[in-house]
Simulated assay, not measured.
Amino acid sequence: MPATPDIPAHLIRRPRQGGLVVPWITPATPDGVALFGTVSDVAQHDCLLRSLCQICRQPLSRRAVLFARASDLGHACTAEPALCPPCAAYSRHACPMLAGRRTQYRATGHPALAAMPEGADAALRRAAPAEAWFPVWVADYDVVEHPARPGTLAASWQRMPPLRIRPL
């Protein structure tokens, strides 16, 4: 698989950096540099609460994919907003963490964010080994507070059994 996978047609107009589509939930510096690996809290909440895809920001259909870390499976929820199936297929190959090209999380935050507070779970992952990821296919989800990350919203499949969970 190439480092820059083919971009789905519906993402052609999305901004790109380094050949990769910039997800809608990824913040950028004032001069337009995408802060990959960082999530805008406002965009994360918007996607979770309005059932929007975190990459293309389009409404989710009857099936969506939640990418959950191994540590999230026991809680039956993830702070990662859902993706539409085409964006999930693209992300599975484009994202270095999902594709397994990174073995650990960043040891430091992005320099552009030095004066800003970190997200609730950024400190938990700092320099930690990368976890296994699982696509969780769902027909719907509830928005809850993540039990392991107080104050962090999450998509939960606790009440509605997922359609499928498989390791990447």
Rank of each mutant, 00 (worst) to 15 (best):
P27L: 08
D6W: 11
A3K: 13
P59D: 03
D121Y: 07
F67Y: 03
R62C: 10
S71I: 00
A79S: 01
M116I: 07
A34P: 04
E118Q: 15
R159D: 11
P111M: 10
T38R: 00
A43I: 01
A82E: 00
W133G: 14
L124P: 04
A70I: 12
P96C: 09
P30C: 04
R101G: 09
A115C: 12
R166D: 13
L66G: 02
A99F: 03
S71W: 00
R106D: 09
I165V: 15
Q54L: 04
A127S: 10
R63Q: 12
R62V: 08
Q104E: 13
E118W: 11
I25W: 04
R14V: 10
G18V: 13
C47R: 06
L168P: 13
R101D: 06
A94L: 04
P129A: 11
Q17N: 07
Q44N: 06
L113C: 11
D31T: 14
A132V: 04
P96K: 05
V39T: 13
A120G: 14
P111D: 04
A128C: 15
P15A: 08
C53A: 01
D140A: 10
T78P: 02
L11S: 11
E145P: 11
V136S: 02
G37A: 02
V65P: 14
L124K: 02
R102I: 13
F134S: 00
A107R: 13
L49D: 15
R13K: 15
A9E: 15
A3V: 08
Q58A: 09
L11A: 10
R16W: 05
V21Q: 13
L52W: 02
V33M: 06
H75V: 05
C47P: 08
H110Q: 09
T38D: 00
T103I: 10
L168R: 15
C47H: 07
G109W: 02
R106T: 07
A130N: 03
P30F: 04
R102K: 15
V138C: 01
W157E: 09
P111Y: 07
H45G: 10
R166Y: 12
D140Y: 02
A130C: 05
A120L: 15
E145H: 09
G32E: 04
A122W: 11
C95M: 03
Q158H: 14
P30K: 07
C87F: 00
R63L: 12
R101L: 08
R92F: 02
A114Q: 12
P86F: 00
L11Y: 09
R63H: 10
R149V: 11
W24A: 06
Q54N: 08
I12V: 15
L20F: 08
P161S: 07
R125V: 08
P96G: 08
T108R: 14
A120F: 07
S40W: 02
R125D: 05
R106H: 10
L48I: 05
G74T: 14
R125F: 13
V144P: 03
A88M: 04
A154M: 04
R57P: 04
P135T: 06
P86V: 01
F67R: 02
V143R: 00
D41V: 15
P23F: 06
D31V: 12
P8G: 08
G32V: 07
R164M: 14
P162N: 15
R13S: 15
Q158S: 14
W133V: 12
D31F: 06
M116Y: 13
S40L: 03
P23G: 05
T26N: 11
